[in-house]
Measured scan of single mutants.
Amino acid sequence: KVILLEDVKGLGKKGDVVEVKDGYARNFLIPQGLAVEATKGNLKEL
C-alpha cells in the first residue's frame, strides 16, 4: 500500500491510500515523488 502525494490518473487523488504492485510503487511512484509507503508513521501524518 502507498499514500499518494499527488493526484495520479487512474489510481486516485492526493492523500488516498491505495494498493499497488510492489514493483510499480518502488520503480515508478516513489522515485517520481508521487507516493510514499503506507507505514504506520506515514498514516499518522495524514
Rank of each mutant, 00 (worst) to 15 (best):
K13H: 11
G12S: 01
G15A: 03
L34V: 08
G12W: 01
G10E: 07
G23I: 12
D16E: 10
K13D: 05
K14H: 04
V17R: 05
T39S: 09
V20N: 02
K40C: 13
V8D: 00
K21H: 14
K14S: 07
K21M: 13
V36F: 05
K21S: 14
L29E: 01
G10Q: 06
L46T: 14
E45H: 10
Y24D: 04
D22P: 10
Y24V: 08
L34R: 05
I3A: 03
L11K: 02
L5S: 04
E6Q: 12
D16C: 10
K1R: 14
G41D: 15
V20W: 01
D16R: 05
N27C: 14
E6N: 12
E19G: 07
G23M: 13
E37M: 13
G12R: 01
L4K: 00
E6R: 15
E37N: 09
L43N: 09
Y24W: 10
E45Y: 05
V20P: 03
A38W: 13
G12A: 02
V36G: 03
V8M: 09
L43T: 06
K13V: 08
I30D: 02
V17P: 02
I3F: 10
L34S: 03
A25I: 06
D22A: 14
A38M: 08
L43Q: 04
I30F: 11
G41H: 14
Y24G: 02
I3P: 00
K21Q: 13
L11F: 10
K14M: 07
V36T: 07
A35T: 01
K13F: 12
N27H: 11
K1P: 07
E45R: 09
L4Y: 00
L46N: 14
K44Y: 05
L5G: 01
K21D: 11
G10P: 05
K9W: 14
E19M: 11
E6A: 12
L11I: 09
A35L: 01
R26T: 08
L29S: 01
V18Y: 03
G33V: 03
I3V: 10
L46A: 14
D22Y: 15
L43H: 06
V2N: 01
L4E: 00
E45P: 04
K40N: 12
R26M: 09
K14W: 03
G10Y: 12
I3M: 09
F28L: 05
L34N: 02
V17I: 08
A38K: 05
V2I: 11
L4W: 00
V2F: 15
D22E: 12
G12N: 00
L34Q: 05
L5D: 00
D16H: 06
L46M: 10
K21A: 14
K14L: 05
E37Q: 10
G15S: 04
K44W: 09
K44V: 13
L5Y: 03
E37K: 09
I30R: 02
E6Y: 15
N27W: 15
N27V: 09
G33C: 07
R26A: 08
A25G: 07
F28V: 05
L46S: 15
F28A: 03
G41M: 10
P31F: 13
T39Q: 07
K44D: 15
K40P: 15
K14V: 07
K21N: 13
K44A: 14
V20I: 08
G12Q: 01
N42L: 07
L4A: 00
L46E: 15
K14C: 08
N27L: 14
N42C: 07
E19V: 12
A38N: 06
L11Y: 11
L46C: 13
L4S: 00
F28I: 06
L4C: 01
G33K: 09
V20Y: 02
K13A: 11
L5H: 02
K44R: 08
G23E: 14
R26P: 03
T39V: 06
K13E: 07
G23D: 11
F28G: 02
L43G: 07
Y24M: 06
V2L: 09
Q32F: 13
N42Q: 07
E37Y: 15
K44H: 15
V20D: 07
I3Q: 07
L43Y: 06
A35D: 01
G23A: 14
G41A: 13
V2S: 01
G33N: 09
F28W: 11
E45A: 06
P31A: 14
L29Y: 02
D16L: 04
R26Y: 09
K1W: 13
E19K: 10
L46K: 14
L46V: 13
E37G: 06
E19W: 15
G10S: 08
Y24P: 02
A25F: 09
D16A: 10
E45I: 06
D22K: 11
V18D: 00
I30W: 03
D7T: 11
K9M: 12
D7C: 11
L29N: 00
Q32S: 11
G10V: 03
A35S: 02
G41L: 11
G33S: 05
Y24K: 03
G23P: 12
D7G: 06
G23K: 11
K1M: 09
N42A: 09
K1V: 10
F28E: 04
V36H: 04
K44Q: 14
D22N: 12
V2C: 09
G10L: 07
L11E: 01
G33R: 10
A35F: 01
D7F: 11
L43C: 14
G12E: 00
E6W: 14
N42R: 08
V8R: 04
N27G: 12
G15R: 04
N27D: 06
L43D: 13
L29T: 01
L11T: 04
D7N: 11
I30L: 08
L4I: 02
L43P: 05
E37D: 09
G10T: 07
P31I: 14
E19A: 09
Q32N: 12
V36Y: 08
V17C: 06
E19T: 11
V2E: 00
K14E: 04
E37I: 13
D7L: 06
E19Q: 10
F28D: 03
E37S: 08
V18S: 01
Y24T: 05
G15D: 05
K9T: 12
V36P: 00
L4T: 00
D22W: 15
Q32R: 14
T39K: 07
V8G: 00
P31Q: 14
K44M: 13
P31W: 15
Q32E: 09
V36M: 10
V8F: 09
K9H: 12
V20Q: 01
D16W: 13
A25S: 07
V20T: 07
Q32P: 02
V36C: 09
E37T: 07
V17A: 05
R26E: 05
L5P: 01
K40I: 15
N42E: 08
G12V: 00
